[in-house]
């Protein structure tokens, strides 16, 4: 598995022009919430099922949230606007950010725990994450504008989508993309995906003038939505407040707890 070796600074490289990195394009206007992506991901990773229930929950969204055994969750959001029912589907996953905020606290504690694959840009949590103190994990999760990282309490591993990196390196599609029947899930070289995203945006905008692509320059998982982001999920989009930290800000934020740790 070709991963950016520890020590080489892969951060800050803007791959928007490069051909080598990969990107997902998720067209929510084609999604039927069939859960093919959610189930295929789980089956590929050979994860156990969580015990889920409708009692006290009453929703099709199961499991209710991302967790160590679900890297991909289809989120359901229903609304009634002007007597018209709208039901938005959001197939949530790690965005494989170009400059992932989660990597900063991890790096400060142990370089190489979180790595970016040079070839694809995939953000990978390695086994070394198991040894990250809880405070570091908390920061990783807090800094993520999309609230993605989850910790397996038993093993300590920090979990999220790994871009099916073994499949991608073997020239296969990520499992969720392969399972999707309608073309909601797309994956390929970044420039092709951005081209596709913009093409679809142009078409969708004719029917839905508020359609937008989310955080195109910052992420490798670009969502096309036809409605306000908060009508999909509270962290569907990263806002200026939640993303684009200056390096200084982030380092300032994380130094404090590290100072505390050093006392332990």
């Amino acid at each position: 598995m070709k991963i950016c070796p520890a020590g080489i600074n892969a951060r800050g490289i803007n791959h928007t022009g490069g051909n080598m990195s990969k990107t997902f394009f998720i067209d929510t206007t084609r999604c039927t919430a069939c859960r093919g992506c959610q189930v295929a991901c789980k089956e590929w990773q050979e994860f156990p099922a969580n015990k889920t229930t409708q009692l006290g929950w009453g929703s099709h969204q199961n499991p209710p949230d991302l967790n160590p055994f679900n890297y991909k969750i289809v989120r359901f959001a229903e609304h009634k606007v002007n007597n018209r029912v709208v039901w938005n589907f959001f197939s949530d996953q790690c965005r494989h950010c170009v400059d992932p905020a989660c990597k900063y606290p991890a790096d400060e504690y142990k370089k190489g725990a979180v790595v970016i694959d040079e070839e694809t840009g995939a953000v990978i949590y390695t086994d070394a994450c198991k040894n990250l103190p809880e405070e570091v994990f908390v920061q990783m999760r807090d800094f993520c504008p999309f609230d993605i990282p989850r910790r397996n309490e038993e093993t300590g591993a920090v979990n999220k989508c790994d871009m099916c990196i073994e499949r991608v390196k073997a020239n296969l599609l990520p499992m969720c993309v392969k399972a999707c029947p309608t073309g909601a899930m797309n994956f390929g070289d970044r420039d092709e995906m951005i081209k596709l995203a913009n093409k679809r945006l142009g078409i969708v905008k004719e029917e839905f003038p508020d359609a937008q692509l989310l955080n195109v320059d910052e992420v490798r998982v670009i969502y096309l939505i036809s409605d306000k982001p908060e009508f999909y999920y509270k962290t569907a989009a990263a806002t200026p407040k939640t993303i684009g930290f200056s390096r200084k800000d982030v380092l300032a934020k994380i130094f404090e707890p590290i100072k505390n740790l050093s006392k332990v």
């Binding site: 859960r35 189930v39 015990k51 889920t52 229930t53 099709h60 199961n62």
Partner: peptide, 12 residues
């Protein structure tokens, strides 16, 4: 099938 029951667990 565990992953299917997980997605739709109970009679509603």
């Amino acid at each position: 099938v565990p992953s299917l029951l997980e997605a739709e667990p109970q009679l509603y």
